[in-house]
Design a protein around this nucleic acid. Structure first.
Length: 731
DNA sequence: CTCTAAGAGATTTTT
DNA sequence: TCTCTTAGAG
């Protein structure tokens, strides 16, 4: 037992050993947050009279949940079986499966991921004859999720003021009805339905409230309103809610996260235990000084200052490049130098604000033959071929799932065109049944082809009856014709391979004890029946996007957005593209609280680095096909000057590289000059305006005395000034 | 059904 | 500029 608490600092120790009361742990970046959370659980079970079944811990990602489980298992001799550890969605799914009848869902309800949901919305729009131009499906989807995450059903949504909201509400109502008919649930639905289940069913509510004496929440600053309401409902009079979070790392407001939950929690639960973890074990002093200085510019904070017992370390290296191409090339050269210094490539990360920026960097790394890995992009279970295969499997489990039906009814092509499908949809709608049911009774010539499809799926179901899961999957990808289809395709080799990988995933799923435990039912209700393996696997596939499915690969430089770097750490970090308009992003400046969120994002970026940090920006950048001239990010100004080391001498362009030459700024400048010799400033030149300060000349508009000059004043935005009257001087 | 052309959109992302 | 989606022709 003493070993459990060894090597904790006083604050960590205090947090871990708090009495069973509500607590809020403000855990700074790199302060040992996960350690506190896991040790707390282990300690509770070890010393208190807490059984594993009394613990519920919730995270945002499967990765975090898995990590937590592994670490607890390592600390405890006891089985972690009875514990509920998972994501919000995973735990809600578990509860809904166990009590599907009370929740009004079929036991094998299917989960719509974002893609499925979008397709679903489109279908509803079409059925309602709504113009997709006036009501873009994506916006409708966003509207629906927004309402759900506020906990609102269509009839509870405030009547819209404008046309869009009024109509969107009606669409939401139709959407809601249709999902109920088909027995499917989108992501926010899992939470909302579970919330409603607990709210309405007093027996269940009191049961779970009495059971979960300890509820622990990770990344509390990222919870949305519905998640907080769910937690409030789950926490009974005897429960202790232990929330860990960092308001300075709240970077997901755009997807509904509500930092205000931290303050609300403190107030509503009368939290007496607020503990700050401020000692950082990750970064050198200068990196923390930079992070602290930066974040101090934010006004709405709970307040926190990171410190370290490690030394100051190196200064932060800052680099100004002429173009984004030079910037990328410099990064590549620097990476090579680092490799010579002995840094492992996987310990080097290049961060950027938006995905589009990776292109140039990839090009430079590729040219320099530096192995790299880009994070993000399509995940395993989101791939077309995998989704097709899953759709067949889903039809076996729930034939009324129209989304899956439509996805594969004519894939691989079997002569069922849009007209047949439309006829089928009409028939289904007029009779109020699913496409599957309508298909069974459809006549005519299209009826024959559709009938063949129905028979195919039916046979598939019969012939896989009782088979082990991996064999079911194998049989389905084969007999559906998917494998044959992709084998015949020119570039289908990868897809065939992924289909095979899906069989492996099913086998791995069956082997993985943890996932079996995850979806196993506990005896909490009379209607608790063991969940069919196929249903469990399908839920797993929807809830776990399959990040880990891709191979980890060789020792490679890590490229990712700042968002996806959250929670990770590296020896060396490059933060690239530090330009006004990019980082902070120009769209954020108009958003309420947008700039502060950008600053938190920068804070996250800075605190990823352990020993060395590079900051860079480019004076010009190719964006949407046009050269944009920008200023250095204000965030650079917000860092203490004395810890910055400016690197001079930009990298030399490689003249033998065609792509490089295309990015050279010189030809553009020449063209601009020759067109109008008399222009006082070059394009891209820095100028000073007495009122607006420093800016960069972007372009000239018009002719003669009417001529205007377009200038980027950075944080003041773009301005058009009359050239003859504007009091401009070269900087 | 497959191929091509034209058009829109182009922060950030997990479940 | 580039990429993804969709509409229309063959």
């Amino acid at each position: 037992m003493p070993s459990l608490l060894d090597n904790l600092n006083p604050e960590q120790l205090q947090a871990v050993t708090l009495p069973s009361q509500h607590a809020l742990i403000l855990a700074g970046a790199g302060s040992g947050k996960t350690r506190v959370l896991t040790t707390r659980i282990a300690w509770l079970i070890h010393t208190g009279n807490v059984s594993p079944a009394g613990v519920l811990a919730v995270t945002f990602t499967n990765k975090a949940a898995k990590e937590m489980l592994t670490r607890i298992s390592a600390m405890l001799p006891v089985s972690t079986r009875g514990m509920w550890i998972g994501t919000f969605h995973g735990l809600c799914n578990r509860m809904l499966r166990a009590h599907h009848r009370d929740a009004g869902l079929p036991q094998s309800f299917q989960i719509l991921d974002s893609q499925d949901q979008l397709a679903f919305v489109k279908r509803v729009l079409k059925a309602m004859n709504v113009d997709e131009n006036r009501f873009p499906p994506r916006q409708v989807q966003w509207f629906i999720n927004d309402q759900k995450e506020e906990g609102l059903r269509p009839n509870e949504v405030a009547p819209g003021r404008d046309e869009f909201n009024r109509r969107a509400r009606e669409i939401y109502a139709a959407y809601d009805e249709q999902t109920r008919k088909e027995g499917v649930a989108d992501f926010p639905e899992l939470l909302l339905r579970c919330y409603e289940l607990l709210q309405r069913n007093e027996v269940l509510r009191t049961h779970y409230q009495a059971r979960f004496r300890h509820i622990l929440v990770d990344e509390f600053q990222d919870t949305n309103r519905l998640q907080y309401k769910w937690l409030k409902l789950l926490a009974g009079p005897e429960s202790a809610l232990f929330a860990v979070g960092d308001d300075d790392q709240s970077i997901y407001r755009f997807r509904g996260a509500n930092v205000g939950n931290m303050a609300d929690f403190e107030r509503e639960f009368k939290v007496a235990n607020v503990i700050r973890l401020e000692q950082n074990y990750r970064s050198h002093g200068n990196i923390l000084n930079a992070a602290n200085a930066l974040i101090s510019h934010n006004r709405r904070r709970l307040g926190k200052n990171l410190w370290t017992a490690a030394g100051e370390g190196e200064p932060l290296r800052v680099y100004e490049a002429q173009t984004d191409g030079y910037e990328a090339n410099w990064i590549a050269e620097e990476v090579q130098a680092l490799a010579r210094e002995g840094f492992a490539r996987r310990e080097i990360a290049v961060l950027y604000r938006s995905n589009a920026q990776s292109r140039v960097i990839e090009h430079a790394l590729f040219s320099a033959r530096i192995p790299y890995r880009v994070y993000g992009g399509l995940r395993f279970f989101e791939r077309q071929e995998v989704k097709h295969a899953l759709a067949y499997l889903r039809l076996l489990a729930s034939p009324d799932d129209d989304t899956s039906f439509l996805r594969v009814v004519n894939f691989p092509a079997r002569g069922i065109g849009a007209r047949s499908v439309e006829a089928l949809q009409d028939a289904a709608q007029s009779r109020g049944v699913s496409l599957w049911k309508a298909a069974a009774e459809l006549g005519g010539k299209s009826g024959a082809a559709v009938g063949a499809f129905v028979r195919l799926v039916t046979t598939l179901g019969e012939s896989t009856q009782g088979l082990p899961l991996p064999e079911v999957v194998e049989h389905v990808i084969d007999a559906s014709g998917l494998v044959a289809h992709y084998q015949a395709e020119r570039d289908g080799a990868d897809r065939v391979e992924n289909l095979g990988e899906l069989v492996n995933a099913a086998a791995a799923f069956e082997q993985d004890d943890a996932s079996v435990a995850q979806f196993a039912n506990d005896a909490t209700g009379a209607d608790a029946a063991p969940l069919n393996r196929l249903d469990a696997f399908l839920a797993h596939a929807a809830l776990e996007s399959g990040e880990g499915q891709a191979a980890e690969g060789a020792d490679a430089v890590q490229l990712m957005t700042v968002h996806s770097a959250k929670g990770l750490e590296f020896h060396v970090v490059f933060i690239s593209g530090l330009e006004e308009g990019l980082f902070p992003h120009e769209q954020s400046v108009t958003e309420d609280d947008g700039l502060e969120e950008e600053r938190r994002l920068m804070y996250v970026a800075l605190t990823r680095a352990r020993t060395r940090l590079y900051l860079s920006y480019a004076r010009s950048r190719l964006l949407h096909g046009q050269t944009r001239y920008g200023l250095a990010s204000r965030f650079l100004d917000e860092l203490p000057k004395e810890i910055l080391k400016w690197l001079s001498s930009p990298a030399r362009p490689r003249l033998d590289d065609k792509a490089w030459r295309a990015e050279e700024p010189l030809p553009r400048l020449k063209m601009a000059k020759s067109r109008a010799e008399a222009l006082p400033f070059r394009i891209g030149q820095s100028v000073v305006h007495p009122k607006f300060g420093e800016g960069v000349v972007i372009e000239y508009i018009g002719q003669g005395p009417q001529m205007q000059v377009h200038i980027n004043f950075g944080r003041l935005g773009l301005k058009r000034l009359m050239l003859e009257q504007a009091p401009l001087t070269p900087a």
